[in-house]
């Protein structure tokens, strides 16, 4: 059980590393938000659940933390991305599709 938890925590740490690499390497705000959100959501999910598996008496507390992260992380990233699009930060040159032009309220 302990080794299982260690493996899960390790995979989570790997995802967190990939996420930080994405934030560092991606060209514009939206790609960075995406890298930061996807990888840190899964990464922190696996890391925290892994700790809960290693210490079974903490499992329910870690479950509550995970639920919190699972809801708050995508929602806050959505708000960040939407706000930066609304305030007119442009996409990077290589992007080919911009769906926000179909909606009202997005300037450019």
């Amino acid at each position: 059980m302990h080794i299982f938890g260690v493996i899960i925590t390790g995979i989570g740490a790997l995802f967190l590393f990939i996420g930080s690499l994405g934030v560092f390497r991606m060209p514009d705000v939206y790609n960075r938000v995406q890298a930061g959100t996807k990888c840190t959501t899964l990464g922190s999910f696996l890391t925290i659940i892994g700790v809960g598996i290693m210490q079974p008496e903490w499992f329910w507390k870690t479950l509550i933390i995970v639920v919190f992260v699972l809801i708050s992380n995508p929602v806050s990233s959505h708000a960040l991305g939407r706000a930066s699009r609304k305030s007119g930060i442009s996409l990077c040159d290589k992007s080919i599709v911009d769906k926000t032009k179909e909606f009202k309220g997005y300037q450019e």
Binding site: F68, P74, V75
Partner: peptide
Amino acid sequence: ASLIVYTGCRFLFPV
């Protein structure tokens, strides 16, 4: 705020 933020806040409030 958008619907996603609205719903997310209502979910997170009790937590």
